[in-house]
């Protein structure tokens, strides 16, 4: 290929255009950098410094105190439990969605999106009203004779788990459904034509193909649970102390920025580590962000 006389000018013009296009990204990048990245970096530095400005690991060492380890334990227990229930409920629902006619699919889709779009506080409030001592669930349980005394369903671990499951379920269903529609049904048919029972073709052909979607949902729900604040704070009634609440208290009650920063940094590192490992192993990214 012979270079024309104006090749240099063309290349310069193209570089200039790319720079111009790149400038379009700068307002967004600048805003996020200043409002989010800058103060997070600041807190990161703060978590390693004493009040006098010296270097220290004291804020991290303090996290081994039972008061903090208890909140980590509660957080992980709740997150595991909620993720497991979400997977158990989300998989059948997404599967049903992928199997029914377009009209039914649309109806299930709307019923998954409706809570997704409803205010988090509204849904939390609804559970507070339903689960309280004289609430609908207890009234119903007593009238049908299942229990004699009203159960303690709210302002404790149980209520928090129920509310969190309700809020996290759409995050499980959407990536699962995306994975299921991507499965080529001819594989399933082929296994059936080769004599596999429906159960066998499901477990040996369909299920493994939807595993990336399931993992994406599991990771997304688990990570969101780890840093969840609003619902545990309301439905836990102060008795369920989560990681996020330790952070809030360090700032709002004790104004202890060193402790809050250290707790926040560890939460960030754990979150990013989970996302990174899962992304490395399974390319989870494709399914996340499909809101």
């Amino acid at each position: 290929m012979t270079e024309g006389p104006n090749a240099g000018a063309l290349a310069a013009a193209e570089r200039g255009e790319r720079r111009g296009l790149f400038l379009l990204c700068t307002p967004a990048v600048l805003l996020i950098s200043i409002v989010i990245f800058l103060p997070i970096g600041w807190l990161f530095a703060l978590s390693f410094t004493t009040e006098q400005g010296g270097l220290t690991l004291e804020h991290y060492a303090r996290m081994l105190h039972p008061a903090y380890t208890k909140s980590f334990q509660t957080t992980f227990e709740l997150s595991f439990l909620v993720t497991a229930i979400c997977a158990a409920l989300g998989y059948p629902l997404a599967y049903l969605m992928s199997q029914v006619s377009a009209v039914w699919r649309a109806m299930i889709f709307v019923s998954v999106l409706f809570p997704f779009w409803t205010s988090l506080l509204v849904r939390t409030y609804a559970w507070l009203v339903l689960l309280q001592r004289r609430g609908l669930v207890n009234t119903w349980l007593q009238e049908t004779g299942i229990v004699d005394e009203p159960l303690r369903l709210v302002h404790n671990f149980t209520g928090t788990a129920i509310g969190m499951t309700h809020i996290m379920l759409p995050f499980m269903v959407l990536p699962l459904y995306a994975a299921m529609t991507a499965v080529d049904r001819d594989y399933v048919r082929a296994s059936a034509s080769l004599g596999a029972s429906p159960l066998k073709s499901f477990w040996q052909v369909f299920f493994p193909l939807t595993l990336p979607g399931l993992l994406a949902g599991v990771v997304l729900v688990f990570v969101l649970c780890l840093g969840f604040y609003v619902t545990p704070a309301v439905l836990g009634g102060g008795r369920v102390l989560m990681w996020s609440m330790s952070i809030e208290r360090s700032v709002a009650v004790y104004s202890d920025w060193g402790a809050a920063s250290a707790l926040g940094v560890v939460l960030l590192v754990v979150t990013l580590a989970i996302l990174w490992v899962m992304n490395r192993l399974f390319g989870v990214e494709r399914f996340i962000g499909a809101r």
Partner: peptide, 13 residues
């Protein structure tokens, strides 16, 4: 992706 509680205290700070 960032934990919202961390983002919140950072912005507050």
């Amino acid at each position: 992706i960032l934990p919202l509680i961390l983002v919140s205290i950072a912005i507050f700070f």
